[in-house]
């Protein structure tokens, strides 16, 4: 890929924005209303999965370098292929009886797993068709509230302010996940939806610097699509560039707590452990997305 030309454009003050978009009530949003945009596909145009089927690893249909989001809870391991998540972005599921929602925003590269119990009740999530900071806005079918994926909270609707509890999820290769979790099951390609999972609608997106939708904050300490592992802990945030993360890991201190960052550069994956070896939720993301949501984020290796 050769040199790129960056055009930094400042928009003028936007006109008054509608209080409803895609049928969702946006009054009193916790984020600037004018920053919420339609993403292109309509509401549920990217259909969430709500009755996922799983197959044993040997019937996965995956190659070693296929990327997955892995979740391990209560001894059970499940893998959700990105080849499916690219088309659906949300999988409402359960792992050893605990209801979870596995989410992925291809525009931001963010795979995040949450407890489906939020704001005092169990919720089923869909894709609203709206974006904030180029990141998916989920909605729950029970209250039609909008939830910011990277903010981990409801930003409008009856559940406004309710938080999503993030569960550790591993964004890695099938090869690595299977090696560490040989008993894993895999989300089946037989979703019942008419999608060609052999085709990646975002092929090439990660290898060019184009950011399709406006973002509220741009941080040029790294290239826009540089992969980082982001940690949000007790009000502090820090990003660890995955290409620079040593195989022996990083011992660090965030928000006064000792943590260990473990990386596998060959698999472009990483995770964070606390001092007791318990995995903490972390988020692999494109740098532009992480820094847009966390303008004050620390950056590993940043001299300032």
């Amino acid at each position: 890929m050769g040199p790129v030309i960056a055009l930094l454009l400042l928009t003028s003050s936007p006109p008054a924005a509608a209080e409803r978009l895609n049928g969702f009530d946006l009054s009193g949003m916790l984020v600037p209303r004018e920053s919420v945009l339609r993403g292109g596909p309509p509401r549920d145009g990217i259909p969430a999965l709500t009755d996922p089927k799983f197959v044993p690893a040997e019937r996965s249909g995956l190659g070693p370098q296929d990327r997955v989001v892995g979740v391990k809870l209560g001894g059970a391991a499940k893998a959700y292929p990105l080849r499916i998540l690219n088309w659906h972005e949300v999988v409402n599921d359960a792992v050893t009886g605990r209801r979870v929602v596995v989410t992925y925003c291809p525009l931001c590269g963010t795979a995040m797993v949450f407890d489906a119990q939020a704001g005092g009740r169990r919720r089923t999530f869909g894709v609203s068709g709206l974006l904030y900071n180029s990141d998916v806005l989920l909605y729950d079918r029970e209250s039609e509230s909008l939830w910011s994926h990277l903010m981990r909270k409801a930003v409008s609707g009856p559940a406004k302010g309710a938080e999503l509890v993030q569960i550790p999820g591993r964004h890695t290769t099938w090869r690595e996940w299977l090696q560490e979790n040989p008993e894993t099951t895999v989300l089946s390609f037989e979703t019942g939806m008419p999608r060609d999972y052999g085709r990646d609608p975002y092929a090439g997106y990660g290898s060019n610097e184009a950011v399709f939708f406006p973002i509220g904050h741009s941080d040029r300490r790294l290239a826009a699509k540089e992969w980082i592992l982001g940690l949000a802990l007790d009000g502090k945030t820090k990003a660890y560039p995955l290409k620079d993360c040593p195989e022996k890991g990083i011992e660090d201190r965030v928000a006064g707590r000792e943590i260990s960052v473990r990386c596998k550069r060959a698999d472009r994956s990483g995770y964070v452990l606390d001092k007791d070896g318990v995995e903490l939720p972390s988020t692999q993301a494109y740098w532009f997305a992480w820094s847009a949501f966390h303008p004050d984020t620390e950056l590993q290796g940043d001299p300032k």
Binding site: G2, V4, A210, F212, S218, A224
Partner: peptide, 12 residues
């Protein structure tokens, strides 16, 4: 709101 649109000049 900052709009960033980066256009590749290579391989066009």
């Amino acid at each position: 709101m900052i709009s960033n649109l980066l256009l590749s000049t290579a391989a066009a």
